[in-house]
């Protein structure tokens, strides 16, 4: 029982990281109908900016995290302006946006690799001792990461459902053309969506860096988040969170009780089965209602 609870706790903490990333994917996908592969690079960028803030600029953690968020938002919005917007204006097929995103991703990861080198670095914050409850270890860092992740997601939800701008984004996600005819500023919506994406990837990158290590290829984990958002139901925020939790817990339970060697095999087999029965994901809706 103790082992089971321990595995569950680990699974939830992994799911929390996937959630941040999955929501980022879901947000861009629901408004623009393409997968923002550049997310991977943004996440590494965010982690490296916070890392540099602490190690080279001797900032306290909170300031470095803030710097990371600001710079990642600039990168994300800049990418939208320079790489995605021109394609959208010229009515390029969605596929081209995805290729463009892959290019941005490769460029970001490789530039980081050139500047910092490919090695693994410890994020320079003290490791907090975990709390032990009846032999089950709960990481303080995990609690913090989980808390902040859900705090950020809650803020996002409030923004989307309780503000006028949020309404604009939701309207755009249903029909971007009609929304713009109704007076919603398309460019402003794009700026906001990509700014939010920047915040999410920076927060995810910093937490991932603290929990594991900082390295240029750290963003490969986003593929898991992408899968989680598909399983939950692509384009829906709550579904992305549910999908992430399912994937995180499923992975640890498969490792713990079936086989860690075949973890991905069993986890993804299970996910394929889910998709066979729920082709739109667990909470997927038809495309007329999103977010």
């Amino acid at each position: 029982m103790e082992l089971f609870i321990q595995q569950l706790v680990s699974g939830i903490s992994i799911g929390a990281i996937y959630s941040l990333l999955a929501v980022g994917y879901a947000l861009v996908y629901s408004v623009y109908n393409f997968t923002n592969w550049a997310f991977d690079g943004f996440m590494a960028f965010g982690a490296f900016m916070a890392f540099t803030g602490i190690t080279s600029l001797f900032m306290p953690f909170w300031l470095a995290a803030l710097l990371s968020i600001v710079l990642t938002v600039i990168l994300s919005v800049g990418t939208e302006k320079l790489a995605y917007n021109p394609l959208r204006v010229r009515k390029a097929p969605r596929l081209f946006m995805m290729i463009s995103a892959m290019g941005v991703n490769l460029a970001t990861v490789n530039i980081i690799n050139l500047i910092y080198g490919g090695t693994f670095r410890k994020f320079p914050v003290d490791n907090l001792q975990p709390i032990f409850i009846k032999g089950v270890s709960i990481g303080r860092m995990d609690l913090m990461a989980g808390g902040i992740s859900f705090g950020v997601l809650a803020l996002l939800w409030i923004f989307l459902y309780r503000t006028k701008w949020g309404l604009g984004i939701r309207a755009s996600s249903i029909d971007i053309l009609t929304a713009s005819l109704m007076g919603i500023n398309n460019n402003a919506v794009a700026m906001i969506v990509f700014a939010i994406t920047g915040v999410l990837s920076s927060v995810a990158g910093v937490f991932y860096g603290i929990k594991y290590a900082v390295f240029p290829m750290m963003g490969v984990v986003t593929i898991k988040a992408m899968i989680a958002s598909i399983v939950g139901g692509l384009g829906s925020l709550p579904a992305a969170i549910v999908g992430s939790m399912i994937l995180g817990i499923l992975e640890t339970l498969v490792s713990g009780y079936i086989s860690s060697t075949y973890r991905d095999l069993f986890s993804f087999l299970f996910l394929i089965i889910i998709l066979l029965f729920f082709p739109n994901g667990l909470m997927g809706k038809s495309s007329d209602e999103k977010l």
């Binding site: 082992l3 321990q6 595995q7 680990s10 699974g11 992994i14 991932y208 594991y212 290590a213 290829m217 750290m218 490969v220 984990v221 992975e251 640890t252 339970l253 490792s255 713990g256 086989s259 860690s260 060697t261 075949y262 973890r263 991905d264």
Partner: peptide, 14 residues
């Protein structure tokens, strides 16, 4: 077991 590139080992370590 784990696979190259993995960063999460808690399930195995538990």
């Amino acid at each position: 077991g784990y696979t190259q590139g993995d960063t999460e080992f808690r399930a195995q370590l538990a």
